[in-house]
Nucleic acid binder design. Sequence first.
DNA 1: CTGAAAGCGCTTACAG
DNA 2: CTGAAAGCGCTTACAG
Lengths: 344, 344
Amino acid sequence: MRSKKSRSTSVDIAHRAGVSQATVSRVLRGSPLVNPETRARVLEAVRELNYKVDHRASSLRTQRSGTLALLLFEDPTPDESHINPFFLSMLGSITRACARHRHDLLVSFQQLSDDWHADYEDSMKADGLILLGYGDYMAYRSKLEQLVEHGTHFVRWGAVLPDQPGISIGCDNFQGGQLVGEHLLGLGRKRVAFLGHASNHYPEFFDRYRGCDAALQKGGASMHADLQVDAESSEEAGYAAALALMERGRPFDALFAASDLIAIGAMRALVEHGRHVPWDVAVVGFDDIPMARVASPPLTSVIQDTSRAGELLVETLLKRVRAEPVDSVMLPPSLVVRRSSTVG
Amino acid sequence: MRSKKSRSTSVDIAHRAGVSQATVSRVLRGSPLVNPETRARVLEAVRELNYKVDHRASSLRTQRSGTLALLLFEDPTPDESHINPFFLSMLGSITRACARHRHDLLVSFQQLSDDWHADYEDSMKADGLILLGYGDYMAYRSKLEQLVEHGTHFVRWGAVLPDQPGISIGCDNFQGGQLVGEHLLGLGRKRVAFLGHASNHYPEFFDRYRGCDAALQKGGASMHADLQVDAESSEEAGYAAALALMERGRPFDALFAASDLIAIGAMRALVEHGRHVPWDVAVVGFDDIPMARVASPPLTSVIQDTSRAGELLVETLLKRVRAEPVDSVMLPPSLVVRRSSTVG
DNA sequence: CTGAAAGCGCTTACAG
DNA sequence: CTGAAAGCGCTTACAG
């Protein structure tokens, strides 16, 4: 139709229903100050002409777009189309949460190096931003400060830290690490290697590391600096890190990977070098991505509640947009035990 | 800033630069009819006030939103956050393609049963729609017809069929099936089971089936109705279908699953029932999702070029929006051989 | 309960 | 090359 006649507007509806354009608008916005019969007539015309409110015009007038933007970034950039599966799962739950809250979602991949603070909200495309991604927190932090200073509405998925700019929703990574430490200790493993960055630059990984350390210490063990190898969250990095670890020649009977991707890459390296998982080395990951169940052996991991997380991110952001008070929140993780860590 | 002073407009810029608001607009749209010095002055003011064009106002005026909408649907609805990984990968490449073409992307999950034809383009939120999903084509088709009749701009990912409403970009599923059939034949396997719907209701799966059949026939074999079991694309369905297949008691030495998820579920069932993959049964999937590499044994699969697909979908849709002529396109698939089908 | 009118922030003929 | 003016399609005080 639209290809032939041009799209109808509220004026067309007004005409057809024999009312003013203002009244059409009132009906469509659900204003209570409209006579029920008038309303019925307008609605009838709306149906007949298959009319839809022009979202741009209404949003220009009301100064609310009803749209949220999701900015997803990873540094270094993953090769084409290989976004971290954990973020993809978050993307799914955020999309659903947006729909529940009757908002649209704009999705965009960004480089940490991009000028992403400058775009979506400034050009009035979105009422607020959801930030999702890994990367060096020290580089990240200054961007966040700009956003705050700029008055942009945003919520970030990530570590909940004291004094951080803006607000965050994140997993309780320390507790996640503890769950892993306790599990390994219960298995009698005390020489626990850690694959992943463990510094302030990667606070999520670092908290996982420290949580595990804290748990081990209760059992008279601890993490060892010579059993820690840096790795970003990818299979390749996990593979390389496991090789580097074995190269060092220090004994270890368990391996805690900062993410499932790292764990999966590491298991490959271990097996290729004759280490049996879990007999020689119990392996635990983090995130519980779909791949974890399928890996061989199936990977013990820490579950982050992505659907709760998506809901909370959207809910919190909408509160921020409405200038209601909000707080950072940490979500409790849980452990799922599979054969990569247990014998039998 | 914006939280304190209100956002600046083109009028503010005009004022500051000592020109008319119309000139500001010309500069920002890159119009050639502006004196270079004037342009410089305007740009200076833009920078100082950190001004960004209000996208809604500009889009209202130009009647172009610069936004595309991606509608993702699956029937039956997957449980929270477990979208088919193949679609997730498509989503990634579509997002990137949109960015390359300087368009924004709105993402939304839909039920096939929803009234999705009615929304995004009608309310002027998007210039066009990308449709992505599995489902009963017969139900789907009537929706497509409505879209066409309605003059909506859309491109669909899926089977390229004669007489279909609108245009499609899809994998050459028949050829994909052929590659599988030739591969299995080369391995000396002739009793090939098929897990997945094989009817007009699921044209993509059906083409894969027929392609495989065509290849087998060249080798004096063929697909058998009693070795085909319906399954939608999920691990659970694959698991159940493999059980049903074994139940029938007909011998088979190869299994072609209509998707990797089906294949992975099926392998689990096979192994649990004492069949060795690939010795007893060579297994091949379709899609080459990330899980395929990690499965045990790693899964032979058919690669669909998702990054090319995303680019083509976006490019084609934008042409449609600009009323340029476009055609449906089939992309050539390729086979990646892993240990689920080869011995040694 | 309803209408006339102003205005959201741009873009683009039109006139100079 | 530049400005004044109309208009994109709505929403919402204001007056009745």
